[in-house]
Simulated scan of single mutants.
Amino acid sequence: MTTTEAEKTGTPAQPQNAAKPVVWRDPAAKPFVKIEGVTKVFDDFTAVDNVSLEIYKTELFCLLGGSGSGKSTLLRMLAGFEEPTSGRIIIDGVDMAGIPPWERPVNMMFQSYALFPHLTVEKNVGFGLRREGMADSEVKKRVKEILEMVQMGHLAKRKPHQLSGGQRQRVALARSLVKRPKLLLLDEPLGALDKKLREETQFELINIQEELGVTFVVVTHDQEEAMTLSTRIGVMNQGEIVQVGEPHEIYEYPNSRFVAQFIGSVNMLEGTVVVDETDHVIIDSPEAGCMIHLDHGISCAPNQEVHVALRPEKIIISKEHPGTQDNCMQGTIEDIAYMGNMSVYRVRLNTGKEIRVTQPNFVRDMGSRLTWNDNVYLHWQIDSSVVLTV
């Protein structure tokens, strides 16, 4: 597993959802899903490249990556729809080599939902149970329970074409959960929903997962969705998992430029390390037009070229000089986007570098706001940026 910044410093960050047991921090805990050196090759293309990962019971783990990163292929190997070219997948202590999908303690919810159009909601949900030969009375009991849980009991007699996108998504989720799998795999489960419904459904999904205690593995390309849903995130790129951590760790302590730029918005400033002590670093950044001062040391060669990642919301923008030379850039506002709850500023520094700044809109008075072509200062605290050497 990738070492997180919290593990390096010995001061683990607080979990996004404090109600969830933080089992992955317990050195004695045994992983529920263990992926050991898994590689998947299609002809001459390596879709998944030597991935090792541990997922713990009751986690809601997100595999996050762009198109072609290998996340869906890894999910399909967990489900048994693809066999690894090399490596092992162990679920609940059992090696899954050669075990077909229908014999694994796993269920999968597909992005398309794949509901039977000619069956009602309750018959869609109970289909798998009936195929297994379960008694009709038990099928009805389980179906009723799970439909009430996903708030679809009142629509049990409807057919898929009579439902909204969000309702179909809930039926697909109910069908996946009704068999009580130990592990539920979800491939872009909310991708077909509009933004507002997707946000609402994210929290419903979290509540259902917590109530049932089923381990979820979710594949998504949506960074915001991964940050909202997950206990931990595995960021994938070109078939590899490049960082694993809690949402807070991934966002605040990215381990590379790729992760910093993939998760949220970030400004990258190039510079040269001129001071590297155990408790602080000073970087000379000509494109920032100032010295950049950080409150921690790094391990690098003398005079090494590095990148400093600075999130837009960490920057303070003002017309007045903050009274410090370090961590202080000067420029002109070129563009402003008013987003309601916040404003986004694109500032052209005197050095020519463009910087993005976000600022919450605390007041309604438009007259007090910064405007186009204002000369401004941008400054930030010494603990607000991260040095990246890769």
Rank of each mutant, 00 (worst) to 15 (best):
I90S: 02
L63T: 08
G93M: 04
G87H: 09
A97T: 15
S72H: 07
L75R: 08
R76E: 12
S67H: 00
K71Y: 07
K57G: 02
G66L: 10
G68P: 09
D92K: 06
A79H: 09
L64H: 14
A79T: 09
D92H: 04
S72I: 10
W102Y: 15
P101I: 08
Y56M: 07
E83Y: 05
A97H: 14
L53G: 10
R104N: 06
D92C: 05
I89C: 02
G68N: 08
S67D: 01
F61Q: 10
S69P: 13
P101M: 02
G93T: 05
S52A: 11
G80D: 12
I90E: 03
S67E: 01
Y56H: 13
E82R: 03
R76P: 10
L63K: 02
S86N: 14
M77P: 10
L75H: 10
G98Q: 08
S69I: 11
F61I: 11
G98K: 06
T58A: 05
T73R: 01
E83V: 14
M77E: 10
A97I: 08
L74T: 10
T73M: 01
V94W: 03
P101T: 08
P100V: 12
L60H: 12
P100C: 12
I91S: 06
G87F: 07
I91F: 05
E83L: 12
L60T: 14
I99Y: 01
T58Y: 01
G70P: 14
P101N: 06
C62S: 15
S67P: 00
T58R: 10
K71Q: 11
F61M: 12
F81G: 00
G68L: 05
D92Y: 04
I89R: 03
G66E: 02
G93H: 03
T73Q: 03
I90T: 04
L60Y: 13
G66D: 00
V94P: 05
E83K: 14
L74H: 09
K71C: 11
G93F: 02
T58C: 00
S86K: 15
G68W: 03
V94C: 03
I55T: 11
P101K: 01
R88Q: 15
K71E: 11
T85E: 06
T73Y: 00
I90N: 01
L74C: 09
P84Q: 05
I91M: 06
M96G: 00
S67M: 00
K71W: 05
P100T: 13
M96S: 00
R76L: 14
G98I: 09
K71D: 11
S86R: 14
T58E: 14
E82G: 10
I89Y: 02
W102H: 15
G70C: 13
L78I: 06
E103T: 07
I55W: 02
S72M: 06
P84T: 08
L75D: 12
D95W: 03
E103P: 07
L60I: 15
G87P: 10
G65F: 03
L63E: 08
F61D: 11
M96L: 00
E82V: 12
T85G: 04
